[in-house]
């Protein structure tokens, strides 16, 4: 019995170790609060931006109707080239004053290397905010409440322990 328990514990240890070695992925809870702007539901796109300021990956899209995606001018231009599969990371659009929650997985190796999270927002017939919220990928910055410049009041991320 004892031996068996030891083997089990060892196996679990090895398994967990190898997992963290292959990809140091961390999960973050993201909470987003909208302002009481006047207008219809906002579409929001969350992207990972590399150190050169280029789009690397789309983390989340709030808003399901593709006909409005061209409102995100910068992102849409990039998207038509890259053609990412978005269906897995698409959720509902957010109304004024509402909240939205989601979770992202962020590769820990990208931390403190000039990467940032960008929240773009667009509302039908109204101004498009190419960088409503930008959060640098550093351990300090990421857990702070970040105020938005446009339709977003603030964004708050929490690492899942």
């Amino acid at each position: 019995m004892k031996i068996l328990t030891k083997i089990q514990a060892f196996t679990i240890f090895i398994f967990l170790f190898s997992l963290s070695a292959v990809a140091q992925n961390s999960k973050y809870k993201c909470m987003l609060q909208m302002t009481n702007y006047k207008g219809l539901e906002a579409y929001v796109v969350v992207s990972l931006i590399d150190a050169k300021g280029k789009y690397e990956k789309t983390l989340y899209v709030m808003g399901t109707d593709k006909q409005w995606y061209n409102g995100f001018k910068d992102w849409y231009k990039n998207q038509s080239k890259k053609n990412e599969k978005l269906s897995a990371v698409t959720g509902a659009s957010v109304a004024a004053g509402d909240r939205s929650i989601t979770t992202f997985t962020i590769d820990e190796s990208k931390m403190s290397k000039g990467y940032k999270l960008r929240f773009e927002t667009a509302v039908e017939d109204q101004k498009y905010f190419a960088a409503d919220v930008e959060i640098p990928l550093t351990t300090e910055a990421i857990t702070q409440k970040t105020d938005g410049k446009g339709y977003i009041r603030y964004v708050k991320l929490n690492k899942v322990q």
Partner: peptide, 23 residues
């Protein structure tokens, strides 16, 4: 739990994070 909403069908939808941190 983050949000509870009731639609016109009077169905109650809840939203939040579970124990594993998944939404």
């Amino acid at each position: 739990i983050i949000e509870l909403s009731i639609d016109h069908n009077q169905f109650v939808t809840i939203e939040g994070f579970d124990d594993e941190g998944n939404d």
